[in-house]
Structures are given as structure tokens and as C-alpha cells.
């Protein structure tokens, strides 16, 4: 598993551009004033899957976050319904 050496703070837009369409594990999250959008963070992991990172997030009680970088580009949803 790749852990970023000497991780540094990046804005979320740069994180999305640098690591498109992957789950990233981030720490030291700073939020925009609206409270619902990540302003910047430190990327710690880039090649763990969503499950591994989500488990780390739950274990950390929120100090570590698992986020998919560019969810607008994947998985057309809607009408998830009964068969």
C-alpha cells in the first residue's frame, strides 16, 4: 500500500486534479466556511480501496477521512429500485 512520503497540504481542487477517480485517505481537513466542502487536506494514502480507507476512517473517529476524489464522473445512479 502506498503511503505518501512527506505529505503536504493541498487544496481540494488540486487533490482532485492530482488524484482523479480514486479513493484517497486524508487528514488535517480544513473546511470551507459553509462547513460542507473540504477546502484543503493532507493526502496520506492514494492506493488503498474505499473499504480499507473507510475502515480506517471509522477507527479514527473522524480524524482520518476516506473520500472519492471525483464522484461526478462515475456511477450513474437514480431509480435504485426493487426487482
Amino acid at each position: 500500500m502506498q503511503k505518501i512520503d512527506n505529505p503536504s497540504r493541498m487544496t481540494w481542487s488540486i487533490i482532485m486534479d492530482t488524484y482523479p477517480d480514486v479513493w484517497v485517505g486524508i487528514t488535517n481537513v480544513m473546511w470551507e466556511k459553509n462547513g460542507g466542502t473540504i477546502e484543503s487536506a493532507v493526502v496520506e494514502f492514494t492506493d488503498k480501496n474505499g473499504g480499507e480507507l473507510t475502515e480506517m476512517q471509522i477507527n479514527s473517529n473522524g480524524s482520518f477521512m476516506a473520500v472519492y476524489t471525483t464522484p461526478d464522473s462515475v456511477l450513474q445512479l437514480g431509480m435504485v429500485e426493487a426487482m
Binding site: 456511477l75 450513474q76 445512479l77 437514480g78 431509480m79 435504485v80 426487482m83
Partner: peptide, 10 residues
């Protein structure tokens, strides 16, 4: 076990 569908199929 439940089957379900969306635009992504079943």
C-alpha cells in the same frame, strides 16, 4: 439477499 436495479443494471 435482495436483487435491485438502477441505470447500472441489475
Amino acid at each position: 439477499r435482495i436483487s435491485f436495479s438502477g441505470f447500472g443494471g441489475k
